[in-house]
């Protein structure tokens, strides 16, 4: 990089010492993303310390108020403190997104490895199933399943995990297919290594790295997805303060107070923007070849 040749100031020297993150922080958009993600994580960990109110403490006389010294962001229709609800909502957002993406990653990688490595009829059948599961938008799939399962935090995590699995499976499969042709796999095969060993010791480590980047970039998508389901009343149930629930409450009282929608909406936008900027920069730094390869 051209930065190496420049006389480095202390900040630059500091960045040079951190392997990957340093490169991310050197790019303005990456640094902005990192700051937002960091603030989000602080919110998740230190939620009770950031607000004197609990997220379900009602104060009916002061309902639907604007920002004030007592309530920084105002109150909702039950007089609950909006800042407290947004701060605790961060826990729900991450608490759904991480396990859901985890389920999709584990399920998708296993299915993709099997389909890609076994090939033949198994691969053909698997591909048709993946295709058909991706034949309609994830929201519609989730709605259809939640309509029958009923809504709860656990069901939302399962449904999102299921909806995202085919995507990961397809990508894993494609990676396995190209890895199978690589000389290092052929060498292993000619040395007499068995299939399981080749699959888990050699192919898996090579396909996992791009998938992890993808998973990181899916976190904000899943966060907005959960908020959307909760907004529709099919995700997290009130009074749990999902950002989608705050939006839905705010929508019901949109003619009385603009604040719940404004704050919850801005939070969602800022958090997804932060994750996206950070994720895209991280991807560019780790694997420039992947740049711009992400589909819709």
């Amino acid at each position: 990089m051209q930065y190496v040749a420049r006389p480095a100031n202390r900040y630059q020297q500091f960045l040079n010492r951190i392997p990957v993150l340093g490169d991310v922080l050197r790019r303005p958009l990456g640094a902005l993303g990192f700051v937002i993600v960091l603030a989000f994580i602080v919110m998740v960990i230190f939620a009770p310390l950031l607000t004197p109110y609990s997220y379900e403490e009602q104060d009916i006389p002061s309902m639907l108020q604007g920002p004030s010294q007592a309530h920084w962001l105002g109150t909702d229709h039950l007089g609950r403190d909006l800042w407290a609800r947004i701060v605790f909502g961060a826990r729900i957002a991450l608490g759904v997104a991480v396990p859901a993406v985890g389920i999709a990653l584990v399920g998708g990688v296993s299915l993709g490895l099997l389909a890609g490595y076994l090939g033949g009829l198994v691969d053909d059948v698997a591909l048709v199933i993946f295709d058909s599961l991706q034949a309609f938008p994830a929201v519609i799939l989730a709605l259809a399943i939640l309509a029958l399962l009923g809504s709860s935090l656990r069901n939302v995590i399962i449904v999102i995990g299921l909806a995202w699995t085919p995507g990961y499976a397809r990508i894993t499969r494609a990676q396995v297919l190209s890895a199978r042709q690589e000389p290092y796999v052929e060498v292993e095969r000619s040395l007499g290594a068995n299939q399981t060993r080749i699959l888990f010791r050699h192919i898996l480590p090579n396909v996992v790295a791009p998938l992890l980047i993808l998973a990181a970039m899916d976190l904000p998508v899943v966060i907005t997805f959960e908020a959307g389901l909760s907004f529709l009343g099919l995700g997290v149930r009130p009074p749990t303060p999902s950002w989608g629930v705050i939006l839905s409450d705010g929508f019901n009282f949109i003619r009385h107070s603009p604040w719940p929608i404004t704050w919850a909406g801005l939070t969602l936008i800022i958090v997804t923007l932060g994750f996206t900027l950070f994720g895209e920069t991280l991807r560019d730094v780790l694997d420039p070849r992947l740049s711009g390869s992400r589909g819709a």
């Binding site: 939006l247 929508f251 929608i261 404004t262 909406g265 936008i269 996206t276």
Partner: peptide, 11 residues
């Protein structure tokens, strides 16, 4: 890109 359609709609 990061504005979900429901947030955009509500705003």
């Amino acid at each position: 890109i990061t504005i979900p359609s429901y947030v955009g709609g509500l705003f």
